[in-house]
């Protein structure tokens, strides 16, 4: 075995992207991946619950009655594009271009806000106009808890990125702010991954079964 790369010589570490240039930043990013793995398990339990309860509508509206493909596609495309603009912000970070980084992060959170708005509107329509609130059936409890948990994560991500934007504005791109911006990007992409499975397992499956 060669020497652990965590004890890289300063010179070698300085060739890495900025967020990896300190041992602390390096370890924190690995730690963040472990956090994302745990989040994956959290969403896994909610998916399991939802899929089991999907058919238990207690005489209330079914998935087929409720879901409309138009708003769902709008949410999906907005979130996919926001994941893309978030990827562009990471590229600007690697170029040490503060303006580009801040600009793409702002586009990302604006798209995030559009997504949350669309989702809140969807929930409101279901609960108020379609007679399908969370308490109506096991299917709807599972649906609102799974989608609500994802929506809360997106909202939290927006607040987190706003905090990072303030720090970037104040301190510029340093190893610390670079690490934070990079981790927020990972989190945002992760939420898009979860949405891909919500789109497939909740909406498309609901339209098929």
């Amino acid at each position: 075995m060669t020497e652990s790369t965590l004890s890289l010589h300063e010179k070698d570490r300085s060739k890495m992207p900025l967020e990896y240039t300190t041992e602390e930043g390096d370890l924190r990013i690995v730690g963040f991946w472990i956090f994302l793995a745990a989040e994956l398990v959290l969403f896994g339990t909610l998916f399991g619950t939802y899929l089991v309860l999907q058919s238990h509508t207690a005489g209330g509206p079914t998935a087929k009655d409720l879901f409309e493909i138009g708003p769902v596609m709008a949410e999906t495309i907005v979130l996919l594009v926001s994941s893309f603009t978030c990827g562009l912000s990471t590229i600007e970070l690697r170029r040490h271009n503060k303006k580009g980084l801040i600009g793409w992060l702002i586009v990302t959170i604006l798209l995030g806000l559009v997504f949350v708005g669309l989702e809140v509107n969807e929930f409101y329509t279901y609960a108020v106009h379609e007679g399908a609130p969370i308490s109506r059936s096991a299917f709807l409890s599972g649906f609102f808890v799974l989608l609500g948990t994802h929506g809360c994560h997106v909202s939290l991500g927006i607040i987190w990125i706003i905090g990072i934007l303030l720090q970037l504005g104040k301190r510029g791109i340093t190893p610390v702010t670079a690490r934070k911006a990079f981790m927020a990007g990972l989190y945002w992409h992760f939420l898009d991954v979860v949405w891909i499975f919500i789109f497939t397992a909740v909406y498309l499956t609901g339209l098929v079964i």
């Binding site: 965590l6 890495m16 990013i29 690995v30 994941s83 893309f84 978030c86 990972l186 992409h189 992760f190």
Partner: peptide, 9 residues
């Protein structure tokens, strides 16, 4: 997008 193969290890 997520650069999962980046980093020192």
């Amino acid at each position: 997008f997520m650069h999962v193969t980046e980093g020192t290890e």
